[in-house]
Design a protein around this nucleic acid. Structure first.
Length: 454
DNA sequence: TAGTATT
């Protein structure tokens, strides 16, 4: 079916509305396709604007690459299509990050500097939106040895005009390192400069997981909304990936046409609970973050910011809670935006177009996996507590108890995980967590046959 | 001084 020396290609700069079936005709002309997969976000299913393509024959891949790479631009894109071997095809580490360039150096200048050390596959100076150099570049050699030779010869070898220190030449960050860098940026933006704050590994992970979930929520919801709302969701996801604090500080209102509505959104007025749980199987989306038992998780609550119900109201505010409050504001703003966006797009179905929220029956997890949550905000529904507890593991059930007569929340609920460690992590992190004027009470659910102490 | 994306 596929030649043993077939090459997997990475295809970049694909419009997000193109799926496999749309892309197939573009690539089929170079040979029989073995596999073509659009890359989607693991959690949100959102099209990432790129794909993997493997032809049965190696030759087809080479033909496609030379015919298409940087040769044409797909509709709606402002950069040409990328067709090149996927990272997984490359041998070893051969990509360099070059820092402390002068602002004047162009791609060509950098290329000249590096070409004595080997064959360069790619050389790009990073530039801001206005075209000014960011003073750094990526240079990819064909082999690891060439890249290493360039480091040996060039790193620290000179100081370029306009640069504040000597030239930096090193291997570009791996994916993992990039993640760390992002977390550090997040920490910095939230003002967490102290050595104690630097231990907040769990905080970053938690925040990022929550941001992902929030973005997913809006993404799911926006399927029923306007293109503008969808764009906002995309932007939001991008921001969540790099800068949760920007997300918090940037409510969705800027995308809404101003139409005289001045009611400030509040979570009580318009809960997001109507958002269908369309995230993954059974409406539940697993999150990899498992703070359970991790040292960072312990550090989070041994540094004087332990959230606890008995804590004085004047206690210092946990930045985690601030972040959470910010997100509430964000999600609360969303329905308000909906109300404003909708009339501008009369062809869009109104809110009745939403499928009915999936009413999941409460499911019990194994002993030790079920938690009880009390003091929930009145407007929290299954969807909200699901969102709140997803970062701690695989949630198999999330249920807010509702008064049958009034359909009002009784302000308590149950969440079940598929393992006890997740339940413990959730209790550790969320018991005493302040939301508005309330602090959550989070504890293991009593076994059915337990003696009732009161 | 870290890109437009890499299962």
């Amino acid at each position: 079916m596929k030649e043993p020396d077939a090459i997997k290609l990475f295809i970049g700069q694909i419009p997000r509305n193109l799926e496999e079936k749309d892309l197939k005709p573009i690539f089929e002309q170079f040979g029989k396709i073995y596999e073509l997969t659009v890359i989607k976000d693991k959690y949100t299913g959102m099209h990432k604007g790129c794909a993997f393509l493997t032809y049965c024959a190696r030759e087809s891949a080479l033909k496609a690459q030379s015919a298409l790479h940087e040769q044409k631009t797909l509709p709606g894109m402002n950069r040409p299509i990328q067709v090149k071997p996927a990272d997984s095809e490359s041998r070893g580490d051969r990509k360099l990050f070059v820092g402390m360039l002068g602002k004047q150096q162009t791609d060509e200048d950098v290329r000249k500097m590096f070409e004595p050390f080997g064959s360069i596959d790619e050389c790009t100076v990073l530039r801001g939106p206005d075209g000014t150099s960011k003073g750094c570049a990526f240079v990819k050699f064909q082999t690891h040895a060439e890249a290493q030779a360039a480091i040996n010869a060039l790193h620290g070898s000179r100081t370029l005009p306009g640069a504040s220190s000597s030239l930096v030449v090193k291997f570009a960050d791996t994916e993992k390192e990039r993640g760390l860098r992002r977390m550090q940026q997040v920490a910095n933006q939230l003002g967490m400069f102290s050595p104690i704050a630097l231990q907040f590994g769990a905080y970053s992970a938690y925040t990022q997981a929550l941001m992902q979930q929030q973005a997913a929520l809006v993404a799911a919801h926006s399927a029923y909304l306007s293109p503008m709302a969808t764009m906002a969701a995309v932007q939001m996801q991008q921001m969540a990936a790099i800068n949760p604090s920007a997300l918090i500080a940037t409510p969705i209102t800027p995308i809404t046409p101003s139409s005289g509505t001045s009611t400030p959104p509040t979570i009580a007025a318009t809960p997001v609970s109507a958002i269908p749980a369309t995230l993954g199987v059974n409406g539940y989306s697993p999150v990899p973050t498992q703070p359970a038992g991790q040292p960072a998780s312990d550090a989070l609550y041994t540094n004087g910011v332990h959230p606890y119900p008995a804590q004085s109201p004047a206690a210092p505010v946990d930045p985690l809670q601030q972040a959470y409050a910010g997100m509430q504001h964000y999600t609360a703003a969303y329905p308000a935006a909906y109300g404003l966006v909708s009339p501008a797009f009369p062809q869009q179905p109104a809110i009745i177009a939403q499928p009915p929220p999936q009413q999941q029956q409460q499911r019990e997890g194994p002993e030790g996996c079920n938690i009880f949550i009390y003091h929930l905000p009145q407007e929290f529904t299954d969807a909200e507590i699901l969102q709140m507890f997803l970062p701690f593991g695989n949630v198999i059930s999330a249920k807010v108890f509702v008064d049958r007569a009034t359909n009002q929340s009784k302000c308590f609920g149950f969440v079940s995980f598929d393992n006890p460690a997740s339940a413990q992590a959730a209790i550790q992190a969320m018991n005493g967590f302040q939301i508005g004027m309330k602090r959550l009470k989070v504890q293991l659910k009593r076994p059915k046959d337990a003696n009732r102490p009161y």
